[in-house]
Design a protein around this nucleic acid. Structure first.
Length: 430
RNA sequence: GGGUACGUAGUUCAGGGGUUAGAAUGUUAGAUUGUGGAUCUAAUGGUCGCGGGUUCGAAUCCCGUCGUACCCCCCA
């Protein structure tokens, strides 16, 4: 006898997946996988751990630093549990890139770990779908990736206007910065970009004051305000004509046209406040927003990151992609009542209780035959009176009970009772 | 890393200095002679998150710590 007990609580920031929760997760993963396969994307996986340096090199101060979960292996190598997929998949692709036919279209569904403070929509262990196209600089690749992101959302059959894909371009951001800031130091530029990124959370006054604190003059601030307040491309072109024929502008314009032609127009919009935290983005960037008042937040995003690959080796290649988390997706489904809908369309399960211990051999045989015929059967293991059997089915939300006792055996039948309607159906035993 | 709130049966909660800590629900067994969500009976359940302090006495007050939820920071 020990005088203490070990807690049965899961580690901080992780969660147990009881069948009810697991069902939701499985539904999300199945939907993702189905959509990706339709796009001809191929599924891959990398190891759970990578050399720690791969993250220290590029993942940034937090993700690649204090949030990294690291240990030392038997050979003294420092390994980390992956906090994101991009370095791994880039490393993996760089091994085959030169010899592989281009482009490569890859996706994976994997878990990750970041040592951060858990909060709504964010845990230490989380799961993500990562989708990337490698080896194409064509705008068609960007278009397709965005279409994939949209179809991933539409795969859950959400109501109209439940989400919006907001679109911008890092090239456009660079244009506006050189237009507004001209000879300002790079450190200040980074701060300005962060402020633009936070525009949603700041009031107009705070926004202005913040820019003033960086020492920007009136003219610069006015240009930035005109930019960030543009509701669409036309408005932007009117206010800041200098941007109109820039590559960044034209790319956004083209992609929105592509997607509108395909019928996604209601879901796509230019939004100058989409910046995204990572520095490696260098072309189109996007974020998908949940429009639900209960869950109004950026769900996921991505973009083009042509310059990233060269950091990991000699091979450089263009890439465009995004990642979407299981938890944010679950919150989206919840906010639009889509989980109940999914639960009600699960395949039927049958409960076949052991009403008479003497019939256990017959019960096993019947179970086997029904399973062979493609049914999902939960077979009773302990002798049970019919009342208890029906109660068990109720409590476990099993819709159909197969009744097979002495009476049925004598008649050479079994009965299927529907728990919802109460109706019974007789079937012959072979 | 900073902040706010909360930790009492498996679960949802009550009790807010005074004997052996309660309810509902769940689980298990039995009753109603094989057609259900019911009712009845019984059993099962808790070092009141953990540690320290104040007190004659702490689930209750104080401090710390751990955990949970949410916000900020950061980031997908």
């Amino acid at each position: 006898m020990s005088n203490y007990t070990i807690s049965n609580q899961e580690p901080k920031g992780t969660r147990d997946w009881f069948p009810e929760e697991f069902l939701i997760r499985k539904y999300i993963f199945d939907t993702w996988r189905q959509v990706c396969l339709k796009y001809g994307f191929e599924e891959y996986l990398t190891p759970l751990v990578e050399s720690a340096e791969i993250y220290r090199a590029k993942s940034g101060e937090d993700v690649g630093g204090k949030e990294l979960v690291t240990f030392t292996d038997l050979g003294g190598r420092e390994l980390s549990i992956r906090p994101e997929m991009t370095p791994s998949v880039t490393r993996m692709v760089s091994k085959i890139y030169t010899a592989a036919p281009k482009p490569l279209k890859y996706f994976s569904i994997a878990n990750f770990m970041r040592n951060e403070k858990p909060q709504r929509g964010r845990n230490r262990e989380f799961w993500q779908l990562n989708c990337d196209t490698f080896g194409s600089s064509s705008l068609n690749a960007d278009s397709e990736i965005l279409q994939l992101a949209l179809d991933l959302m539409l795969g859950f059959e959400p109501p109209k206007n439940s989400f919006t894909l907001n679109l911008s371009n890092r090239k456009l951001i660079d244009e506006i910065l050189s237009l507004a800031l001209k000879e300002i130091k790079p450190e200040i530029k980074i701060e300005v970009v962060r402020t633009l990124d936070k525009w949603n959370k700041l009031s107009a006054i705070d926004f202005k004051e913040r820019l003033e604190s960086f020492g920007l003059n009136k003219e610069s601030i006015e240009i930035l305000e005109q930019f960030i307040n543009s509701k669409n491309l036309n408005e932007l072109a009117e206010k800041l004509p200098a941007l109109k024929n820039t590559l960044g502008y034209l790319e956004i314009d083209q992609v929105i046209k592509d997607l509108t032609d395909l019928g996604y127009g209601d879901y796509v919009a230019f939004n100058p406040a989409v910046i995204r935290g990572f520095d490696y983005y260098d072309g189109l960037v996007f974020e998908v927003f949940d429009n639900s008042p209960d869950n109004n937040r950026a769900m996921f995003g991505g973009g083009r990151y042509n310059g990233l690959a060269e950091i990991f080796g000699s091979v450089s290649f263009p890439a465009v992609g995004f990642a979407i988390g299981d938890e944010t997706t679950r919150l989206f489904l919840e906010s639009w009542g889509l989980i109940e809908k999914m639960k009600n369309s699960q395949p039927a399960r049958y409960y076949l209780p052991l009403l008479d211990a003497k019939l256990s051999a017959e019960l096993r045989l019947l179970t086997k035959n029904l399973r062979r015929a493609g049914q999902n059967i939960i077979m009773g293991l302990e002798e049970q009176k019919i009342g208890k059997a029906l109660e068990y089915a109720n409590k476990n939300k099993i819709a159909q009970v197969i009744i097979f006792g002495a009476d049925e055996k004598a008649k050479g039948i079994y009965k299927i009772k529907n728990m919802m309607s109460g109706q019974e159906e007789e079937k012959k035993l072979n």
